[in-house]
Nucleic acid binder design. Sequence first.
DNA 1: CAAGGAGTAACTACCACAGATCATA
DNA 2: CATATGATCTGTGGTAGTTACTCCT
Length: 329
Amino acid sequence: MSSDLFLLDDSFFLHSSSDIVSSDLDLQFLSETFVPFAESPFDILQSVFDDPNQQISADPSPSAVYPLSSSPPIQNLNNLSLSQTTQLQSLPPAANSANGLTDVSVWDTFGVESEECYVGFDSSHYPSFFSNSFGTGKATWMMQRSFSSQSLDSKSGFLFQPRYNSLLESPNFQTQVLDSTESSRFTGPMRRVSSIGDLHMINGFPSSSLAAESSFIEEASFKVGRYSAEERKQRIHRYRSKRTQRNFNKTIKYACRKTLADSRPRVRGRFARNDEHGEIPKVTGFNRDEEDEDEFWGNGYHDEVDEKTMRGEPFVNSFIPTEFQYFGF
DNA sequence: CAAGGAGTAACTACCACAGATCATA
DNA sequence: CATATGATCTGTGGTAGTTACTCCT
């Protein structure tokens, strides 16, 4: 997985693109720390839309527990479905354009039934990141497994409208928020998120001004799930410190061996012998006659990759990694 | 509800061989 | 002790096969 979940806050929050949620471990951490009793990563998202009237439903299997080594729990995220159980007032599109942040008319903004809560995106920017359907009156977002937060960084156009929970809707809270240094970025029901750094939200809290907000939250004895704010901070600190020590990069100990491996001829992915003279074999094979070659290649097994490898060409460009979580930032 | 097939993703073995490492003379 | 030689081990990447799991019928 590396569908980034950046729904934490301030010191809790994933601030940079290097803080992407990139593993099952991350998800477990998130679920345990922020959404205790979560049955699936879906619940994590639900916390963002924390509202008794709002439900995020997926098709969670009864056994939606995701041990670290199991199949990717993010699979559950591939079938996100937001649903509004009650009809609340719709957000007037004009309100968004009026604040200068969002011109709804140019956005593919998908309402979730009541349009009270929706996640929008510029589909021209994200042709494959999300896809949606409205089959049964619910919007379903398909989140590409390996969409890196870097992509979000580089492309603006991610809309995120959280539900406000009761605390956020508190006049006192809104006052504090609007008085904060980054209040201009928090402009009411619609907030444009242009980077992962902007996606600092939990339970609808904008995170950027958390210096003020967190104290407020603490004063309000804000507690999510089983952990107090302090406990969460400690857990997050431990998590992040351990996380920094993780090494997602495959370190090449011997560059020369990599070079050799890249240039080494392969047969169905396996290293093949060089010819007897130690020369890099040509496309035509290993000086084999036609009969041997047919046998060697099986049923005419020829493809571009192998032709390249047989020529000793590294075909780096022919392979586009799809799992960004293994690449450090 | 249980069983079985389809679909999907993660994981792993396999291969050749240059270079590193170790043991011995 | 220093050097030479041979044997053994290590590491490198793409693919196919296996495993585990979910979803659907």
